[in-house]
Design a protein around this nucleic acid. Sequence first.
RNA 1: GGAGAGGUGGCAGAGCGGUUGAAUGCGCCGGAUUCGAAAUCCGGUAUGGACUUCGUGUUCAUCGGGGGUUCGAAUCCCCCCCUCUCCGCCA
Length: 469
Amino acid sequence: MIDLKDLRENPDRYRTGAARKQMAVDIDRLLELDTKRREALSEQESLRAEQNRLSKETGAKIGPLMGQLKKAEGDERTRIQAEVDAIKAAPAALKEKIQSLQETIDAIKPEFDEILLSVPLPPDEDVPVGESADDNIELRRWSPDGWDADKSFHENRGFKPLTHIELCDRLGLVDFPRGVKLAGTRSYVLTGMGMRLHQAVLRYAIDFMADTNGFTPMSVPVIVKEEAMVGTGFFPAGRDQAYHIEETARGSGHDLFLTGTGEVGLMGLHQDEILDEASLPIRYVTVSTCFRREAGAAGKDTAGLYRIHQFDKVEQVVICKNDEAESREWHRKMIGFVEAFLQSLELPYRLLQCCTGDLGVKNADMIDIECWMPGRGEPDADGVPSGEFGETHSASRLYDYQCRRLNMRYRGGGEAGQGATTFCHSLNNTVAASPRILIPILENHQNADGSVSVPRVLRPYMNGIERIG
RNA sequence: GGAGAGGUGGCAGAGCGGUUGAAUGCGCCGGAUUCGAAAUCCGGUAUGGACUUCGUGUUCAUCGGGGGUUCGAAUCCCCCCCUCUCCGCCA
């Protein structure tokens, strides 16, 4: 959520920001509703003040009168009753006005909230302006020793690559037909060594972040309340992407949603909390099953492990102080962790600076990391794929946008902790999403004989197995 | 799933229709005392919003959440959520 005060003072900043992100949001309407709402609230507040003042007087008078009333008889009783009635009548008019203003406020609220939650965080000035993913800018590439990124897979390795789908079939790593039988399109079953490799990557990723980089490993819910989805910024914009468990339909108190990323659970942990400044930065890593409806992606990446409804992801988040320089520094570090991770897996990758049009509502900046997937891309005349980079990671810098929604603050003032409260900054980045990460692992580490070498760093997690097939 | 008890400030715990944003204790902060500390004593100690002559000050909301009754609700009623105890079931 953006800062409403800042929006009032600098509406153009948000108009421009939304435009650069290719998002339609009616700022003028929001400001109009805000004015109406504030007028009503302000008037209501002064009426309440009057009501409270009267109430205090009334309380002191009515008590004794009620006592007298019990004992009194005849005319005396009638007189006291009239006095009591008169005292009671005074605030009645106020009550009606307050009620009427409340109705005005209630009528404004739904539309107001809807628009407010939809106003995107303006992208940083140094984020290149663009319309879509096509305008993203490559920052740099890395390739392992012995791999020439300018040459084809065949030229590099001396044989034509198989796609991960072919490898999975031949090596018995994935059972797609039975996955579809069980759960429909975009479903799969990891089998045998496929499952072992999947678990190995995830476990290695957790250890890498916890042991090497000092992140605290966590296990968090993947079925959460709507507040967590709204708080983390996935709702209302991404409502279509989430599976919805309609518990209210069976009489329970609230509906639940399946999370599409561990970020929801990790960031939701400290919702409505005031953290100690000394506890920052908080660094969490989790592995969680992620659920995505992939609404609107019909027909896209339908085959293989690339775009699926359910997968497991190791995710890193950082919650730090409200300081742009610190946020930027953490962003660099979190990307660095992933680079070191991918380099240890010997996977060619590139960094993409996402343009404004490719950013979501909640980020000021986003760097995607794409791994080289030899089995992707348009096949040549012989049916051999040309290879293509495929997105495997996404690193976002959100400043206080997410923490504002989550109402997550910290108290400054050092040890004494007497300072003002401030919204935290937050960042998140993938560490490893599997089975998608298996695509570059299988395809890049395949051998001429159709086997796949297990990357060295994963062997300890595979009981020392060096080769599949 | 069944039966019962309960959710109040950082924590413990009173209040159960009237001037109560809320007693008391602990904790925490400041001060006094002390060579220093402990103990003791004094004072302070929620969050968010609105207005402000930006020094403050004034004010509204918040006692699990929502709705209702009332001139007035932490206190009464309804719904929901959560916690605890016992039984059942289960990984």
